[in-house]
Amino acid sequence: MPLLPMASMVSVMPLMGEAAALLTAILWGLSACMHTSAARLVGSLSLNLFRLPLSLLFFLAGMLIFGTPWSLPEGAAGWFILSGVVGLAFGDVVFYASAVRLGARLSVLLWELTPAATAVLAYFFLGETISLTGMAGIALTMLGVLWVLLEKHDGSIPDLTPQRWVQGIFFALVSVAAQSVSTVCARNALIMGGDVLTGAALRTGSASLALWMFVLLAGRAGHVVRTLRGSPKALRLMLAAGIIGPTVGVWLSLVAVKYTKAGIAATIIGLEPLVVIALLAVYERKRPSPRLAVGAAIAFAGTAMLFLR
């Protein structure tokens, strides 16, 4: 098979990060649907404590199979560890704390502030810039996502008191900040020359260790183990979802932030809620509402503008 001309290879490289981000959104959307089904059986805490160590095993196996180097450039390991603890561990915990109070729809809606926050952090700490076309694409993508997520899909939350409302908003914003910091930290490590697969394993391992240390200190480890043993179906779902999302998806997300700007990668990955809505519409065999169709068209138009930035 003839090699591609150098010019063709160069023309493809600028799209690698965006393509990886889009695939991340699709895989994370599919994984989210499967994880949600498992969480209904064993609870969100058991879910998070199982999926991260499982992903770590997959990453370590991948490193052995592909002969990935175990070493990282000086300073990169610390940034990967910080990224994992802040984003995969702490960020997820406070996000679910918000979802419990506000409901998943509003929490995910607020979480869509993450791309903007990531772009701002990358501007100050990584020296990244975004063109006017890129800024317009980000705004249009967020507009489409917000348009879909603001549609009322379920009933009101009966125990949503003013205090719980304030707490939910606070936890959601903290989660946005955590995810933004996590992305910028990972981007910084990759700029230093850190390997994507090694970085993914280190991020996942540090997050898993942080979560299990928290559970052990809280005295809930035994309860988690008993819950998992009592639901083989949930274990099968988490096994499949663990390969799709936290393993392949996380690896692709790091490929995205390595080959494109952090704010742009976060924006495209932010299409995940649309993927979830589309998958559920197919699974439930319900025709999408006009608002869903228009919102999806707006969001993907914004993504196209990011490709043309």
Rank of each mutant, 00 (worst) to 15 (best):
W165M: 12
W165T: 11
W165V: 09
Q167E: 15
Q167W: 14
Q167T: 09
I169F: 13
I169D: 02
F170Y: 06
F171T: 05
A172T: 06
A172W: 05
A172E: 06
A172M: 08
A172R: 03
A172N: 04
V174N: 10
V174T: 13
S175T: 09
S175D: 10
V176K: 01
V176H: 02
A177H: 00
Q179H: 13
V181G: 00
V181S: 01
S182T: 04
T183D: 00
A186S: 14
A186F: 02
R187M: 03
R187W: 02
M192Q: 12
G193E: 05
G194Y: 00
G194S: 02
V196A: 00
V196K: 00
T198L: 08
T198H: 09
T198V: 07
G199H: 03
G199D: 03
G199P: 05
G199T: 03
A200C: 06
A201R: 03
L202G: 10
L202I: 15
L202R: 04
L202S: 08
R203E: 00
T204G: 04
G205V: 08
G205H: 00
G205I: 08
A207L: 05
A207E: 02
A207P: 01
S208R: 04
L209N: 08
A210L: 03
L211E: 05
W212Q: 01
W212G: 02
M213D: 10
F214P: 04
L217F: 14
L217K: 13
L217S: 14
L217V: 15
A218S: 13
G219M: 09
G219Y: 10
G219H: 09
G219T: 09
R220G: 15
R220C: 09
R220E: 15
A221E: 15
A221R: 13
G222A: 15
G222P: 13
G222Q: 15
V225A: 05
V225Q: 04
R226W: 10
T227E: 12
T227G: 14
L228P: 12
R229N: 13
R229H: 15
G230E: 15
G230D: 15
S231Y: 07
K233L: 13
K233V: 12
A234K: 07
A234W: 06
A234H: 09
L235R: 14
R236D: 07
L239N: 08
L239T: 15
L239A: 14
A240L: 14
G242R: 08
I244D: 05
G245C: 06
P246N: 10
T247H: 11
T247L: 09
T247Y: 12
V248A: 14
V248C: 08
G249L: 07
G249F: 06
V250G: 04
V250P: 05
L252Q: 07
S253N: 11
V255D: 04
V257K: 01
V257T: 09
V257S: 01
V257R: 01
K258R: 11
Y259F: 11
Y259Q: 02
T260W: 02
K261L: 12
A262R: 03
G263P: 08
I264K: 11
I264M: 11
I264R: 10
I264V: 14
T267M: 02
I268P: 06
I268W: 04
I269M: 14
I269A: 13
